[in-house]
Amino acid sequence: VFPTPAIAMVGLNDDQNKVLPSVFQQEGNNIVLIGETKGEFGGSLYLKELFGDTAGTLPSFDYKTELKLWELVIEANKVDLLMSAKDVNVGGIAIALSKMAAVSGKGISAKISVQESRDIFDESQSRALLEVRDADLDEVLVMASGLGLKAEVIGKVGGDTVKVNGVALPLERVKDVYFNTFKRTIEQDL
């Protein structure tokens, strides 16, 4: 899984300046979801938050798929096809997109094909969000397909709202939650 705030995708002999940010870089860029959303919620933040339960079967993990995902990100970054990348993990796609938007200060509009509306919080493994310019989109999609990875253009960077399917919040509210909730919680307990 990718560390934050930047994903270093360099080898020992690669250019050390090829650090890939994990926040949005430019309005108008495409957001591409790599990997499959399988409806996996075992031990998820979703179950804990809504139902107060940490139960169920943990998401499956396929090392070969994870390796292909890393290969895609590394190779696409080497040839400057990616503007940013972020793993999808705790909280699923909705939370990953919200974090990217809050830290970058750039809104997004995304529509994700899911079985159930709650699947925007699904925590299936081996998924990433890639920010790609229009000019590079076809090449990234071909690279993903060549590796046997599912790739779906789910939205665009821009605006003053964070919208994922039917859920929409003003960007300023998302930033407030991201940057100030912990501080407010601690101050209440003092």
Rank of each mutant, 00 (worst) to 15 (best):
S44M: 07
G52R: 14
K78Y: 10
R118F: 06
A128I: 06
E49T: 12
L147T: 06
D15P: 08
K106I: 06
I108H: 03
V73R: 00
G92Y: 01
A85N: 11
F51P: 10
S126R: 03
I112A: 05
L47P: 04
N17V: 09
L20E: 00
L129N: 02
S104K: 09
A96F: 00
V79I: 13
S84V: 07
I108W: 01
I120Y: 03
P59V: 07
T57R: 15
S126E: 04
S22I: 01
T54M: 14
N17E: 07
S84W: 03
P21S: 14
Y46C: 03
K48W: 09
S44D: 06
D119Y: 05
E27T: 15
A151S: 13
L97D: 03
T65W: 02
D53P: 05
V140P: 01
K18M: 03
D80H: 12
G43D: 04
K156I: 09
Q115F: 13
G92L: 02
E40I: 14
A135R: 10
V90A: 12
D119C: 06
I120C: 06
A76K: 02
G56N: 08
L130K: 09
G92A: 08
L50Q: 15
L97E: 04
A85E: 01
R118N: 10
D119L: 05
T65P: 05
K150Y: 00
D87F: 01
Y63P: 14
I31G: 00
G92N: 08
V79R: 15
D136A: 15
F24G: 00
E66L: 11
K150E: 00
S145G: 13
G155N: 06
G35V: 03
V90Y: 12
D136I: 08
K86V: 02
K48R: 15
A102Q: 06
G43C: 12
L20M: 14
T65L: 08
S124D: 01
Y46T: 07
G39D: 10
A94T: 09
V79H: 14
L33K: 05
L129C: 06
G56R: 09
A151Y: 01
